[in-house]
Design a protein around this nucleic acid. Sequence first.
DNA 1: TCAACCTTGACATAGCTTTGATAAGGTCAG
DNA 2: CTGACCTTATCAAAGCTATGTCAAGGTTGA
Lengths: 131, 131
Amino acid sequence: MQTAVVDALTINEAAETTGWSARMLRYIESVGLVEPGRSGSGYRLYGPAELQRLSTLRMLLEEHGLDLAEVGFALRLERDPQLRDAIDLWLAAEPSRPEDVNAADWLRFEQEKHQQLLLAAKPHTTTMEIA
Amino acid sequence: MQTAVVDALTINEAAETTGWSARMLRYIESVGLVEPGRSGSGYRLYGPAELQRLSTLRMLLEEHGLDLAEVGFALRLERDPQLRDAIDLWLAAEPSRPEDVNAADWLRFEQEKHQQLLLAAKPHTTTMEIA
DNA sequence: TCAACCTTGACATAGCTTTGATAAGGTCAG
DNA sequence: CTGACCTTATCAAAGCTATGTCAAGGTTGA
């Protein structure tokens, strides 16, 4: 255990400088975005990097109309490639926008990804007008 | 306007075969995931592709503990590259996991992306123990 | 030592999401 | 033409998000 002189703000100071409330800083940490270091006694320490992140986070949310849960989900996506691949695979098969789907990509995905459901539907023939 | 014999299920039939409720099929459509075609009179028509998608969607959610809003958000991310880039940029600067950040990538991002905030904090020097 | 911080945990509220149910009114098939 | 099905719109309840606030108890520094 060492002792050092660091340039860091405690939670209320960080709250003041970033515009978030102390409550929200703890919440943001609980969501996994911006996790400050801790002092030996457990005090949260916000350094320049964290303050920067908190400010840009605020702008990110405002500029794109996002909420913390969404950014948190993006983080989860980034940290769980399997999850990301599963979702990308599903989205890649988008049937309503055929122009967007590149058959070759889809096939490659399909191959390296195994996913294959046997469709157990009992289709039923109907005569209808198609616009 | 043409007339054709198509192999498609109406909403309640689709609900039965996919396990979703009719209500949810409409909801899923409203969220932009799985948008079925329509008959001339406005009835939703679920073809094999849509049924497949609905089934895999169900599995996707169950296997990864996701909810529709999250997949909907992933869809939004895919369709709005600017949004995706903005979030990726923010996430890329993750200060708490320095090993994950490749300085070169970050710099490249920074260059092609402009984002640059001047940090207006009034840091304050504190002496504390660092574990 | 004591005021002014910090920590975690809990309770509370406003608002949005997810789902079901229900109503008023077209469409289809026998 | 009539029952069964579809459509949209709306009300409602359960659940989660985002915040605030308060309580009980440790830390810091003059």
